[in-house]
């Protein structure tokens, strides 16, 4: 297991979202779950907590998360991830799914 926490600069989240939290994905082989919650402390940063079963890929994680924080206004959110070996492209997909659910609702 590898655990780390890091905040990434990001434009503030819209003041209104459909839900206070959203979840995407499940903890299965090659998959992960991503939870996005409102109420992260600084409104211009995305606070990330990652727990992964595969150690040694911190650089890839930081790249994927910072890329997302750069492209989406996710400042003031807390991102918590439980990972069981998902590839970076899936990490990105789940982040976007969770973000969509948070901002627009489940439909």
């Amino acid at each position: 297991m590898e655990k780390f926490t890091k905040a990434f600069p990001s434009k503030p989240l819209p003041s209104k979202t459909a839900k206070p939290w959203a979840l995407a994905g499940v903890v299965g082989s090659g998959n992960l779950e991503v939870m996005l919650e409102r109420g992260g402390k600084p409104s211009d940063a995305m606070e990330c907590h990652v727990e992964t079963s595969i150690p040694g890929y911190k650089a890839s994680w930081l790249a994927a998360l910072s890329d997302f924080a750069h492209h989406y206004p996710a400042g003031g959110t807390k991102v918590t991830i439980n990972d069981q070996g998902a590839p970076p492209v899936l990490v990105n997909l789940r982040l976007r799914q969770a973000y969509d659910h948070l901002t627009k609702g489940d439909k």
Partner: peptide, 21 residues
Amino acid sequence: LPPPERITSPYLAQLGIPVSF
């Protein structure tokens, strides 16, 4: 007990297996 409450397995965490919210 929705995911934000984070009621997760203490055993899996000890064994180094990923938990679920």
